[in-house]
Design a binder for these strands. Structure first.
Length: 603
DNA sequence: CAGGTTAGCACC
DNA sequence: AAACGGTGCTAACCTG
């Protein structure tokens, strides 16, 4: 057995590294004498839990002054004892539990279901204390960032530097070192052991910092994380032959368009500098600028030029689009699919400042919605249909409730068309459903939720600034209490530096952007409506059918013969009353692919 | 040259 | 008086 002795925050700490089976007796004594609570972490070959090459290497247990590192990669007794320890310790502390619990599930066969009820996740606590990432003025949520702020900056840098140094020593990179490094490497085991010691210390520091209002969110967020983690484990079935064909078709499209652009003298369509060079040579003046003052070459400009007959601009648009669709979507799906053709998107249930979720790996929140091509890559299970259940005008209904605006509440209660109301307040009572004035009303309704004004509306709709102002005023006239509520909220944000949502969540408000307070509370409350719905669906045993949450929507795969009934049932479970406003969910039943819900957009 | 930043584009 | 909120990913570009 190897023992590292070092100091954290001025205190002596010991990290014991199990090397032979003889060391396991002492390890199990450590577990037995700390059976109430320990922090846990694992080291693995990478982050691709569901790939066939993925392996677990080390598992670490520890408290504030002592850690044990077990080389589970060796299997046998090392693996057995770790499984026993995971199941035996009564409370487990982890930093980003969803990751390690999926690792244990996949590699050791310890089901997540066994462990979630006894987990405390320091990352969840950190987010409830301050949801901002480093770049937005927060302290970050990674173990290193949290250690730097709450424990000791030097230790944080040392730990971070350890793997960097190791990668350098071995002639590798930080991303690749994890699978290569020797299991008993001293830097590696020191790093591994330090992680659990720091996690234990973090829990102590973070617990008292969770605001009193947010305390009730602690359990709730662990449960949301749990349900999301099950969805990730299930994965989404990929139509591999279709995806491969689509990838080829897109590649062909991209190359054909890029060839045309090349013949105009543009070597790379993705380089704004290159594209500008060609446009400039043809006498096109670009007036719009990027934030750093360079000519702005975007889709808006290129489409305008294409519409005026520019073959070059059209080619650039086509090549860029085909390239993005292939590289960002289709090829990523094919690459990440496991041996059973399933894609496991990774869901971060608590991501944004507002607590909105984010989905990475397969960026499922951002697949093109105007064309079914990309979403057709994903399939319901054999014999199943895709079902989507989404909240109707979720954020506007949340706004109606929060602001208490009588007109808005009444409009929703009577089933009236909110976009029409805004349009009529601006343009007069003659506006009808199909009119373009109603579309402008819709843009204004959303812009108001986002904190946008007349300039934004003008740009988005193409109408002039004066008319845009008129419609924005129309909104304020139609729903006067929204403005009152917004300014009260701004004041609160400026006074306290944060606002508190109805669930008790603190959302920091930047003094230079106090107008964003309204959007924050609406977005965050809407997120909690969907998150709470996930918990009710889990309670109702729907989880095995869930595929993904997408903001105001939940996506499922359900047996085809029961699809209509299931969609109705899920909608019923999701629908909820908020004061005088009903947050109504509506189910849609599709065919075998996700894309089937996006075909032949009518109207 | 790895890793960070910028620009652009996909969504709610 | 006005104020566009939140995300992820890629290629190109920049920097230590």
């Amino acid at each position: 057995m190897l023992t590292h002795k070092t100091k954290v925050d001025g205190q002596d700490v010991e990290i014991h590294v199990v090397q032979t089976e003889d060391d396991l007796d002492m390890f199990s004594e450590f577990i037995a004498s700390n059976i109430g609570q320990l922090s846990v972490d694992s080291e693995t070959t990478g982050l691709d839990i569901y790939s066939s090459r993925f392996k677990i290497r080390l598992v670490q247990f520890g408290h504030a002054t002592e850690a044990w590192v077990v080389p589970v990669e060796l299997g046998g007794a090392f693996e057995d004892i770790v499984i026993w320890a995971l199941l035996t310790v009564k409370k487990l502390i982890l930093q980003n539990a969803a990751y390690d619990l999926q690792v244990f599930d996949q590699t050791l066969g310890v089901k997540q279901e066994e462990l979630w009820p006894k987990v405390t996740d320091t990352k969840i606590l950190a987010h409830l204390i301050d949801p901002r990432p480093l770049r937005d003025g927060g302290v970050g949520h990674s173990l290193v960032d949290l250690t730097r702020f709450h424990i000791d900056a030097e230790i944080a840098d040392n730990v971070k530097g350890l793997m960097k140094k190791l990668a350098h020593d071995e002639g590798s990179t930080v991303a690749n070192i994890w699978k290569k490094v020797a299991l008993d490497n001293e830097d590696y085991t020191l790093y591994a052991g330090m992680d659990v010691i720091l996690t234990s210390r973090l829990l102590r520091k973070l617990k008292p910092l969770v605001p009193a209002d947010s305390k009730k969110l602690v359990r709730y967020e662990h449960e949301v994380a749990e349900v999301c983690s099950y969805m990730v484990r299930t994965g989404f079935l990929l139509d591999v032959p279709y995806s491969e064909q689509l990838s080829q078709d897109l590649k062909y499209e991209e190359q054909a368009a890029a060839k045309i652009a090349f013949d105009f003298g543009c070597e790379s369509v993705n380089s704004p500098i290159e594209v500008h060079k060609v446009l400039d040579a043809y006498g096109v003046k670009v007036t719009a600028e990027t934030p750093t003052g360079k000519p702005k070459i975007d889709d808006d400009l290129l489409r305008k030029l294409a519409a005026e007959g520019s073959e070059f601009a059209q080619a650039v648009v086509d090549a860029k689009k085909a390239g993005k669709w292939r590289k960002t979507w289709v090829d990523t799906f094919i690459k990440t699919a496991d041996s059973e053709r399933r894609c496991h998107a990774s869901i971060n249930p608590l991501a944004a400042r507002t607590a909105r979720m984010s989905i990475t790996g397969i960026p499922a929140q951002t697949l093109p919605a105007g064309d079914s091509k990309i979403r057709k890559c994903f399939l319901a299970e054999p014999g199943h249909s895709i079902v989507s259940v989404d909240y109707q005008a979720q954020e506007l209904r949340v706004l109606a409730h929060l602001s208490g605006d009588r007109n808005m509440i009444k409009a929703f209660a009577d089933g009236e068309d909110l976009h029409l109301i805004t349009a009529r307040a601006a343009f007069g009572e003659h506006v009808q459903k199909g009119d373009k004035e109603r579309d402008i009303g819709k843009v204004v309704n959303f812009a108001r939720v986002y904190g946008g004004g007349a300039a934004v509306v003008a740009k988005q709709t193409g109408i002039d600034l004066v008319t845009a102002k008129k419609v924005v005023d129309g909104f304020d006239k139609a729903f006067p209490e929204v403005k009152v509520y917004s300014s009260e909220l701004q004041k609160e944000g400026l006074r306290k530096g944060f606002i508190t949502t109805p669930t008790g969540r603190r959302v920091p408000v930047d003094p230079a952007k106090s107008y964003a307070a309204l959007n924050y509370i609406v977005q965050s409350t809407a997120r909690d409506v969907t998150a709470a719905a996930l918990l009710r669906l889990h309670e109702a045993k729907v989880t095995p059918f869930l595929r993904l949450p997408i903001h105001d929507e939940v996506l499922l795969s359900v047996p085809t013969e029961r699809a209509d009934a299931a969609a109705a049932k899920v909608a019923e479970i999701m629908t909820v009353k908020m004061g005088k406003v009903t947050l109504e969910a509506e189910g849609k039943v599709g065919g075998n692919s996700w894309g089937s819900l996006y075909e032949e957009e009518k109207e």
